[in-house]
Design a binder for these strands. Structure first.
Length: 868
RNA sequence: GCCGGAGUGGUGGAACGGCAGACACAGCGGACUCAAAAUCCGCCGUCCGCAAGGGCGUGCGAGUUCGAAUCUCGCCUCCGGCACCA
C-alpha cells in the first residue's frame, strides 16, 4: 500500500551473484527416473492452473455453514514490480489463511491495488506517459507476479481504486460526510511540497521536515482546503478495548491523538494608550495550579491579536519577528534545542486571579495550531517558559514546592516534578493547598466569574484531505458565482477524471488548465460554474476498501450491508507498522464516521492486527530501486521454486522482526524440501555411501516415528495460531530429519511411516501448497484413491496419548547448577523422584557429603537440591 | 529530549522463571565418486584437559529468587516513531 518506491528507473536487476554454490536442477545421474525428482518449475504452474480451474479459492460469501474468516492483507501501490518485501507480507498471510481454511473456516482473502498516487504522476511527468497507462501496465505485471506465490487470493473480488467503479463511491461517501457535517473547507497554512503539492501533517517527516514521498523540503502556503473532522472522534479513537492490536501501535496512536486535560483561562488585556479596548486572551493550560506564577504571556506569531495589541513603537520589531517566523525554515523552528526567541508587544494582560499586570510577548515556541495559540508563561514550572524567561531576563516566581522546600530557594531549572505532595505557595488564599486540589479550586473560583473552564485538547488535527494533484479521485464539488460551494448531486456521479492530461513537466495540477473539465453548470441554478480541481488524498481509498472487496461490482451503492454485517470487522489484518498513525487511524475514523452516517453498524474496522517486520536491503537500508538493493523474487522463484521462497521467508526469523535481506540459508530450506520429497517419493531408497543399519527394535522405531509426528503436529498447530512460522518450519525439518534416518530401513513404508508422511504433508500444505499438493496426489494415486485437493482436507487432530510424555530425563541441580540428568518415568511422586536422584553417584559427588537442606521440585521439569 | 522495540555462538535464530544455543547457514572431517558437483553421515559457544571431567558464558552493573537470557532497578549501544503540544 502506498509504497513510496519511485517509478522504475531503469531495467534493474544485474544478475545477483548468489552465494549458493548449489544448482538445484543440476542433472543427477544417480536419479534414473525423472518423475521421482522434485521439480518446482514443473509442478508449481501446473497446480496453480489446476486450482484456478477448480475455483478452489473462490470464496462463497453466502456460505453460512462455516464460520466466516476475513483475512485482509494491505493492498499495494502498483509501483511496477514486486520485491521480496511483498512476499514477506503476503506468503505467511496466505499460510495463515490456508491453515484457517483447513480448520474449517470459510476464508476470504481478497487482493487489489491502491492505484492512485504520486509515483504515477512523477513517472508521467518524467517519461511523458499517461499515469493511467503507467499504472495499468504495472498492475498487469504485478498480477502475474502475485500469481507465482500460489496464494489463495480470490481474484474475482479484485479492486483497482483508480477505476471509476471504485472512486465513484469515494465521491458518494464524501458527499455523505459533507452532509453529516464531517467535511468542511477552510483556508489555512498547509505544508506544501514543491513537487507533490499539499501534504498532510503525517506526510511530513523528520527533523528537517521533508516530504515523505520525494524528500523535498516542505514550505508553508495558504490555501483553501477540504478537511475531514477526525478530531470529532478523538476520544473514541483512544478506546482500543474492542480490538486486539499490538501494543506499540496502540501507544503510537494514543500519543498521536495526544489528549491533554486542563483548563482554558481568559485573561483581559490592560487598557493602554494605543489600545483602550480590553481584549480577551484565552490560554490553555494543563497546570492551572501555577496561575499565580504566570509572569508573562506569549502569543504564537500567527495569533490574530498580535497585530491588534502591538504598541506603535514596537510595531516594526514585532512585524519583523512575525515575518521571520513565517519564513524561518522549519528546521530552525522545530529544533527543540534552539535558543528561545521572541519580542515584547508593548502590551500587558491582567492575571484574572492575582490581578497582576504582566507583559505580553510573541514567540515562535508557541504553536498557532495547538490549544488557543497563546499561553500563560510560568517559567518556574515549565521548562520552555523557564528558558524564555532566562533568555529575556524575565521574572521567575515559584508557586509550587515540595514539602520542606524553602519557598524562596532560587530555581536552577523549571520545577515540574509531580509526586502529589507538592503544595501551593505565593498563591494568595490558595497557599498550602496540594497542587492538584489548588488547581481545581482556582479553576472553580474563576469559573464562577466565567473566566475559566475545564477543557480537553488534542494534538490530533483534522484530516487535510485535498491534494492539488491530477491522479486521484476528483472531489465532487462545483463553485458557482450565485450559489457558492455546491455538491455534485449523487445522480451525476462519478465526476470522471479526464482521460487525457497535459503535463508540462511540472508538479502543478494539470486539471487547473483543463477547460473541458473545469467548465460545468451549477446543479442548483444551472448557471456557469467551475469544478473543484483538488483531488482526494489516497488515504481515502484505503479507508474503506475492505468493505468494497465484498461487493466490488455493486453499482447501486458503495457497500453491501448484508455482506458487511456478515463479514466485517475484518478478522485478521496484516501489514507493515509504517501505517501506524496514518492508514490505520484513518480507517478507524472512517468506520466510525460511516457508522454515524447510518451506513454501517460497527465501530472498528479490524478486530486483530499483526505487523510483520520490514525486509531491508542487504545494506540494512530500505529497499528501493534507486539504492539498487532490491531483491527480485522472480529470480529466486526461477531458481528454487515458490514453495522454497515462501518457506525461507517464514523460516528466516520471527515474522514481526524483519531484517536485512540475505539469501544465505535459502539453500538449506530448498534441501529440506528435497529431503521431504525424497522420503515421500522414495522411502526405500538409500543414498550411496550410507551404511546399511537396520534399527534393532522395529516396533520401538515405529512408535518413535508416530510419537514424533504427533508431537510435531501439536507444536505446529500452536505455532500457526501464534504466527510463529519460523519454529513451525523448524519442527517440520526435525520430523523430516527423523524420517530420513529411517529411510531405506524396514521402518520405511510401514503404517507408522505412512502416518508420519500423511501428517507431514498436511502440516506443510499451508506453507508450501504446491509441493504438498503434488505429493498428496501421488499418495492418493498410489493408494488407488480418487483425487481430492489437500487444500480441502481438514486439519488433522493429534493423539493426546502419543503427545503425552512417558519418560523423561530430569535435570537435577545442586545449588542451582545442573549436575546430572536422571531418566525416569513421567509422573512419579516427589519422594520417589528424590530417591532416584539421591541414588545417583554424580549427585552424591556434587553434594560432597552435605545433605540438602531443601529440595525444590518443578514437577516433571527439574529438581534443585539446595545445601545452603 | 520523549515514547516504543531489540541486544544470545562466525551468521539467521531457539528457549520467554527451570537442561542456554532447537532448527538452519557458514566452516571442518568423513562416506560415495576415477574426479568434481550433488547427496548422505559426523563435529561445531569459549577456556583448561589426551580423555573423563571441569571453569566461564545470553550488551554492562546491581537486585529479587532454591533457580534469571527471561522479572526489577540503573547504565550502554542499535533500530523505529514523535519532536517546543503549554
Amino acid at each position: 500500500m502506498t509504497d513510496p518506491t519511485p517509478a522504475p528507473a531503469s531495467s534493474a536487476s544485474e544478475s545477483t551473484e548468489s552465494p549458493e554454490p548449489t544448482e538445484p536442477r543440476a542433472a543427477r545421474p544417480s536419479a534414473p527416473d525423472e518423475a521421482l525428482r522434485y521439480r518446482p518449475a514443473e509442478i508449481e504452474p501446473r497446480w496453480q492452473t489446476r486450482w484456478a480451474e477448480l475455483r478452489l479459492y473462490e470464496t462463497d460469501l453466502h456460505d453460512a455453514s462455516r464460520p466466516p474468516f476475513y483475512l485482509l492483507t494491505m493492498y499495494d501501490y502498483p509501483s511496477g514490480d514486486l520485491h521480496i518485501g511483498h512476499w514477506y507480507v503476503k506468503t505467511p498471510t496466505d499460510a495463515l489463511g490456508r491453515f484457517h481454511r483447513m480448520r474449517g473456516d470459510n476464508v476470504f482473502m481478497p487482493i487489489g491495488f491502491d492505484a492512485f498516487g504520486l509515483p504515477a504522476e512523477n513517472a508521467a511527468i518524467k517519461n511523458r506517459i499517461d499515469p493511467r497507462d503507467w499504472t495499468m501496465h504495472n498492475i498487469d505485471v504485478m498480477r502475474r507476479q502475485l500469481r507465482t506465490m500460489g496464494a489463495m487470493f480470490d481474484w474475482r473480488h479484485e479492486i483497482v481504486t483508480a477505476d471509476p467503479s471504485y472512486y465513484r463511491w469515494n465521491q458518494w461517501l464524501f458527499l455523505r460526510l459533507l452532509q453529516a457535517g464531517l467535511a468542511y473547507r477552510q483556508k489555512s497554512a498547509v505544508d506544501w511540497c514543491p513537487n507533490d503539492g499539499t501534504l498532510a501533517r503525517e506526510q511530513v517527516e523528520g527533523v528537517d521536515r521533508h516530504c515523505w514521498r520525494c524528500g523535498a523540503k516542505v514550505e508553508k502556503r495558504e490555501l483553501d482546503q477540504w478537511y475531514l473532522k477526525t478530531t470529532a472522534y478523538a476520544d473514541e479513537l483512544l478506546d482500543f478495548s474492542t480490538i486486539d492490536w499490538p501494543e506499540p501501535i496502540r501507544i503510537m496512536q494514543t500519543n498521536w491523538i495526544g489528549r491533554s486535560e486542563g483548563a482554558e483561562i481568559a485573561f483581559e488585556t490592560a487598557p493602554s494608550d494605543h489600545h483602550a479596548q480590553p481584549e480577551t486572551l484565552r490560554v490553555f493550560t494543563t497546570r492551572p495550579d501555577t496561575l499565580f506564577g504566570a509572569t508573562f504571556m506569549v502569543l504564537a506569531p500567527e495569533h490574530p491579536l498580535v497585530a491588534v495589541l502591538t504598541a506603535p513603537e514596537r510595531k516594526a520589531e514585532v512585524e519583523a519577528y512575525v515575518a521571520q517566523a513565517a519564513d524561518r525554515t522549519e528546521i530552525d523552528r522545530l529544533s527543540t534545542d534552539r535558543p528561545k526567541t521572541g519580542v515584547a508587544l508593548g502590551a500587558e494582560a491582567i492575571n484574572p486571579i492575582a490581578g497582576e499586570r504582566i507583559p505580553i510577548y510573541v514567540a515562535d515556541y508557541v504553536l498557532g495550531g495547538y490549544g488557543t495559540g497563546a499561553i500563560m508563561a510560568v517559567p518556574a514550572h515549565d521548562e520552555r517558559d523557564y528558558d524564555f524567561a532566562v533568555a529575556l531576563g524575565l521574572p521567575i516566581r515559584r508557586v509550587v514546592a515540595a514539602p520542606g522546600t524553602e519557598a524562596e530557594t532560587p530555581l536552577e531549572a523549571a520545577f515540574s516534578a509531580h509526586t502529589g505532595d507538592e503544595r501551593l505557595i505565593n498563591s494568595g488564599d490558595f497557599d498550602g493547598l496540594p497542587a492538584d486540589e489548588g488547581g481545581r479550586a482556582i479553576v472553580a473560583r474563576l469559573a464562577e466569574a466565567g473566566r475559566a473552564k475545564p477543557t480537553v485538547t488534542y494534538r490530533l488535527r483534522d484530516w487535510l484531505f485535498s491534494r492539488q494533484r491530477y491522479w486521484g479521485t476528483p472531489i465532487p464539488i462545483v463553485y458557482c458565482e450565485q450559489d457558492g460551494i455546491v455538491p455534485v448531486p449523487e445522480a451525476d456521479l462519478p465526476v470522471l477524471l479526464p482521460d487525457t492530461v497535459d503535463y508540462r513537466g511540472s508538479g502543478e495540477n494539470p486539471l487547473n488548465r483543463d477547460e473541458a473539465f473545469l467548465a460545468t453548470t451549477c446543479p442548483r441554478c444551472g448557471g456557469p460554474a467551475r469544478r473543484e480541481t483538488d483531488t482526494m488524498d489516497t488515504f481515502m481509498d484505503s479507508s474503506w476498501y475492505w468493505f468494497r472487496y465484498l461487493s466490488p461490482d455493486k453499482d447501486d451503492g458503495p457497500i453491501d450491508r448484508h455482506l458487511v454485517a456478515a463479514w466485517t470487522p475484518v478478522d485478521q489484518y496484516t501489514g507493515g507498522a509504517e501505517h501506524a498513525v496514518m492508514h490505520l487511524l484513518y480507517s478507524r475514523f472512517f468506520t466510525k464516521a460511516l457508522r454515524d452516517c447510518g451506513l454501517l453498524d460497527q465501530d472498528e474496522p479490524f478486530k486483530r492486527l499483526f505487523n510483520q517486520g520490514q525486509i531491508l536491503g542487504a545494506d540494512g537500508e530500505r529497499m528501493s530501486k534507486s539504492r539498487g538493493n532490491v531483491q527480485d523474487p522472480d529470480e529466486l522463484v526461477a531458481r528454487y521454486g515458490a514453495d522454497t521462497v515462501r518457506l525461507f521467508l517464514m523460516f528466516m526469523g520471527p515474522w514481526d522482526q524483519g531484517g536485512p535481506w540475505s539469501p544465505t540459508g535459502i539453500g538449506g530450506v530448498h534441501r529440506f524440501l528435497n529431503r521431504l520429497w525424497s522420503v515421500a517419493v522414495e522411502p526405500h531408497r538409500r543414498e550411496p555411501g550410507v551404511a546399511d543399519t537396520e534399527p534393532a527394535d522395529l516396533a520401538a522405531a515405529g512408535q518413535e516415528l508416530r510419537v514424533a509426528a504427533h508431537r510435531t503436529l501439536a507444536g505446529v498447530t500452536v505455532d500457526y495460531e501464534g504466527f510463529r512460522f519460523n519454529t513451525m518450519v523448524a519442527k517440520l525439518m526435525e520430523l523430516t530429519n527423523l524420517l530420513m534416518r529411517y529411510r531405506g530401513t524396514a521402518v520405511a513404508g510401514g503404517p507408522d511411516w505412512q502416518e508420519a508422511i500423511r501428517l507431514l504433508l498436511l502440516m506443510l500444505a499451508p506453507a508450501a501448497p504446491h509441493l504438498a499438493e503434488e505429493l498428496w496426489s501421488r499418495r492418493l494415486a498410489e493408494a488407488g484413491e480418487g483425487w481430492r485437493s489437500i487444500h480441502l482436507e481438514p486439519w488433522p487432530a493429534f493423539d493426546t496419548q502419543l503427545v503425552a510424555v512417558q519418560t523423561i530425563e530430569l535435570p537435577v541441580q545442586v545449588d542451582g547448577k545442573v549436575r546430572d540428568r536422571v531418566p525416569m518415568t513421567a509422573g512419579l511422586d516427589a519422594a520417589e523422584v528424590e530417591r532416584l536422584v539421591l541414588a545417583r553417584p554424580k549427585i552424591q559427588a556434587a553434594l560432597g557429603g552435605r545433605p540438602p537442606v531443601r529440595i525444590v521440585h518443578a514437577a516433571g521439569r527439574l529438581v534443585n537440591l539446595v545445601t545452603r
